[in-house]
């Protein structure tokens, strides 16, 4: 029974990583940049939801919707002001700018909401219960876990359909393969990149709310470590690949939870990263990534 309990925890943690990793992987696939500010967009999303639900005492649904809208706008603004002028610049310049944006968001949030950790309201209570218990109370599954996993699956299906079936999705795939050629074929590259950032940031908001519902401590640096781990998950699954992000996220969540449960809590991060290194050594472009041979 405890095994099943850990499995559920691992799956829901993995689903959160997967949703964050999706944001990384989509932006990387199209803009070829590591968006280090992504983790901090998660934090902003969680804070917006926290303000709406806790301080303004409005219904949680409104909080989630507002968080998604504000983060989407934030993502587009960041892309316009900070990343768009650097389209032609070397990738390291973009990386440093992303780090600058990350510092800006963290310190901005600290000014607005303060540095002390806030306790995130529990939003997923139905009928006074925060979960369902099975097998005579031996196994408790929280509603947050169920919702997280279902949201993750829904997002994954929606995104796959979006990139496969719609015009914008086609444009995205074209941009990720060859920006110049896509432009020649009449794809509006700038608009496509903006839409990608918007989707990534909206996903970050969802992930932020879900993550803080499951682990309810919220501070301006809440987003950084999950951000790094989700980035690892994206690389693990093969960066640029949507199913890869799902696989990487879920595996990372499971490995982390099982390590904590059965091996050691202190070294769980080290083990997670060690597994990543081993995987990359065996498959240098991640589990589902495409291997692109270098051309002379």
């Amino acid at each position: 029974m405890t095994f099943l309990g850990h499995l559920v925890t691992g799956l829901s943690l993995g689903a959160i990583y997967a949703i964050i990793a999706l944001g990384y992987t989509m932006v990387y696939g199209i803009a070829k940049m590591l968006n280090f500010a992504h983790g901090d967009v998660i934090m902003v999303g969680a804070f917006v939801c926290f303000t709406v639900v806790s301080s303004l005492e409005l219904p949680p649904v409104l909080g989630i919707i507002l968080a998604v809208i504000l983060c989407t706008v934030l993502g587009i603004i960041i892309e316009r002001l900070a990343y768009k002028p650097l389209r032609q610049a070397p990738s390291l310049a973009v990386l440093i700018t992303a780090i600058g944006v990350s510092y800006l968001l963290q310190n901005g949030a600290q000014l607005i909401w303060g540095a002390s950790p806030k306790s995130f309201p529990s939003m997923f209570n139905f009928g006074g219960e925060n979960g369902i218990s099975l097998f005579d109370g031996q196994l408790n599954i929280s509603y947050v876990a169920i919702i997280t996993v279902s949201v993750c699956i829904i997002i994954m299906i929606a995104l796959t359909l979006f990139t496969e079936k719609t015009r914008m999705g086609k444009a995205m795939r074209a941009c990720s393969e060859d920006k110049a050629a896509a432009q020649l074929m009449g794809v509006n590259v700038n608009q496509t990149i903006s839409v990608t950032f918007a989707i990534g940031s909206a996903l970050a908001a969802v992930a932020g709310v879900l993550m803080c519902s499951a682990y309810p401590a919220l501070s301006p640096t809440t987003g950084s470590l999950p951000g790094i781990k989700a980035f690892t998950a994206a690389v693990f699954g093969g960066i640029g690949s949507i199913p890869g992000a799902l696989l990487g996220g879920i595996l990372l969540g499971l490995i982390e939870t099982f390590t904590k449960a059965y091996i050691t809590t202190d070294l769980s991060d080290a083990i997670v990263f060690a597994v990543l290194i081993v995987v990359l050594l065996v498959k240098p472009s991640g589990l589902l990534g495409k291997y692109v041979p270098e051309k002379v």
Binding site: A89, A93, L104, Q106
Partner: peptide, 16 residues
């Protein structure tokens, strides 16, 4: 740190 971040971003934008 806010100013530090802004300086960082501006230097990268201006420099490139």
């Amino acid at each position: 740190m806010l100013i530090y971040a802004v300086i960082l971003i501006i230097v990268m934008l201006v420099g490139n």
